[in-house]
Design a protein around this nucleic acid. Structure first.
Lengths: 346, 346
DNA sequence: ACAATTTCTGAAATCGTTTTCAGGCAAGGT
DNA sequence: ACCTTGCCTGAAAACGATTTCAGAAATTGT
């Protein structure tokens, strides 16, 4: 019933507590065999609480994300866990629901229970990273930066470049009336994807009405509403770049509801791939990125930072994204003279 | 730099350690105010390790699932976490990758670190639940039973009924050649969904060749291969019930690759809904269930079991499922009479 | 004002480990 | 034989909280 302690093992094996402890930690010990037997017999497992108390290490790592239900974060969790599985750290998971307040709570709570933290802050002016730094908890940020506070190890992707190449792709088909459904602008991905969109347009000297930027807040409903507004415009866009996966679902639903056809009436390109993208009709062209890898890398950086307590310079890694072309983009319908077709598609 | 201890607080407030502890736990104490001040000043947070050691409680709960990347389990995690967020327990998350061996490892590891565990076992003859029972860790099983061992609190859904009504739906359109892509048969959902399928057919006295049951192992690739085999049959089915979400993706990809049309050539019904289902072409008819709710309920049951150490009878809850009809099912195209060829195989 | 209560306090024991610390015992050198 | 090394060992002191216990202070009743 009650869990055996190291003292029970010592007694059973006829040696002292210290000897058992030493053997378990790997020291050479005469009674090794007997101890192993006793451990097996009693099914002894050392108490993590006692070990933490003595060592100051918890053997745990926190992983704080806005929402596990988002396939991207689910993948990050999986990637992070795959690394941790080897090295004997366990993962505390927490959702923040994209709320700064909730994030503060969970961070405060987890602070003392872990040796390090992987954090995807809800917004860029979020105090959590600073709090973690103050508390001396090794931290690496995922997908979102914390520019307001000091530097942190960070694993980002090339949001700007990704958005830019998405828009370039649209431009290459001859589109000029290119709109975007943006995320929350005070988050790193939201900000840079929007800037990338603008940069691409600017470099082609294209100016667009402000209505062509709709804020969808990274939520499905926001994507739906944004697309509805977009299509209700007196002079609607011929192509849209949607800045994340969940908003894309909403946007496509709106498109379907209204009866607009892709890509004939409207070209669509999304950000972040999904198994479903391939079986949509038409299959969705997206900006893709190594999601699990992003989580795995972040975890590796965290573990390294945790062991090397050396004051390493903080690292900022930016992963490449990739355009995977499917069939949701094509030339604008009313193109003056079907002229500028590049990657012609059925 | 170094975290303050309760002794630091005591010293700062000019009282004894015991007094501080008492105040923090809610006792009436004269120096209350001064202690609060000291706590705030030093930013004191009690050490969870020390508290656990003394109390025997860890304040943590484990959540072990086959794969967070599966939207269903992601939803379960979210549901569970939403409950826990109130009551001050933190969640350890672990993936087992559907492997019994891996599950044994993580369970063994987590065993000592938590006050209770939510577990979706990889298979039905998995020793983990028994191990947990032996160790005296309150456990509730999610979505999958452990019939081989004793009774456990369990939160299931009506797999049998769901599968059955899926097939009935197909039957109501006049289909007779109804196939299924099943999951792993030694898991609860796999087994019962298959049985439900068979029961529906049996109750209409329909007999089908064994090829009409393909095992997809709950994986996308399995769904793809299964569907390929199905469509290559000399006398293929006119309707298919796919037993989970990921296999459905694979199956739909196969269908798309081959060029079969839904629902004209083949009706398809899936198990478990997804935001994408609605924007497929045609929108997918599915058996739906309250996913987050399932996780939330399981967590509530676990917490209750953890507090009421009373030896309550173990509860087995079965949640209802619901058919949400969209447009992937229709009448069979050619209803050839007497087309019931048996055991035809290349 | 004094005794009988009640409330509050601090010292110390405890939880289960790890880690000094001072030896014990065997081997090796002279 | 004796002394020096070198391994291994067990007792005991941490780690940071909670809780028992006995006693001090404050409150009450008469």
């Amino acid at each position: 019933m009650k869990a055996p302690t190291i003292a029970d093992v010592a007694h059973e094996a006829g040696v002292s507590v210290s000897t058992v402890s030493r053997h378990l930690r790997g020291d050479r010990v005469r009674a090794a065999e007997g101890i192993d037997r006793a451990v097996a017999l009693l099914r002894y497992r050392p108490s993590p609480a006692a070990q933490s108390l003595k060592s100051g290490k918890t053997g745990a790592v926190a992983l704080v994300v806005p929402d596990v239900t988002n396939p991207f974060f689910a993948a990050v969790v999986r990637g992070a866990e795959s690394i941790t599985a080897q090295g004997g750290h366990t993962i505390f998971l927490a959702n923040t629901d994209e709320s700064d307040a909730r994030e503060a709570e969970v961070v405060e709570d987890l602070l003392t229970r872990v040796d390090g933290m992987l954090l995807a802050p809800a917004s860029e002016d979020n105090p959590s990273p600073q709090r973690l730094a103050d508390a001396g908890v090794p931290t690496v940020l995922i997908d979102r930066e914390a520019p307001s506070t000091g530097r942190f190890d960070t694993v980002l992707i090339d949001n700007h470049g990704g958005a830019r190449s998405a828009v370039e792709h649209l431009l290459s088909y001859g589109h000029e009336r290119i709109a975007t459904i943006a995320g929350t602008v005070n988050s790193t991905p939201g900000r840079f994807r929007l800037e990338g969109y603008r940069a691409a347009l600017a470099s082609h000297s294209i100016e667009l009405p402000p209505d062509f930027v709709q804020i969808g807040g990274f939520k499905e409903h926001g994507g739906y509403q944004s697309m509805l507004r977009m299509l209700a415009l007196p002079d609607p866009p011929t192509a849209v770049f949607v800045a994340n996966n969940t908003m894309t679902i909403g946007a496509l639903r709106a498109i379907k509801d209204i009866g607009v056809r892709i890509p004939d009436d409207l070209s669509v390109i999304g950000f972040d791939d999904h198994p479903f993208s391939e079986i949509l009709d038409p299959p969705l062209t997206v900006i893709d990125r190594p999601m699990e890898q992003q989580g795995a890398l972040a975890m590796r950086m965290l573990l390294s930072r945790m062991s090397n307590d050396s004051w390493r310079e903080s690292r900022r890694v930016v992963l490449d994204v990739r355009l995977t072309e499917r069939a949701s983009c094509g030339p604008p319908r009313s193109t003056p003279m079907g002229a500028r077709r590049k990657g012609a598609r059925a």
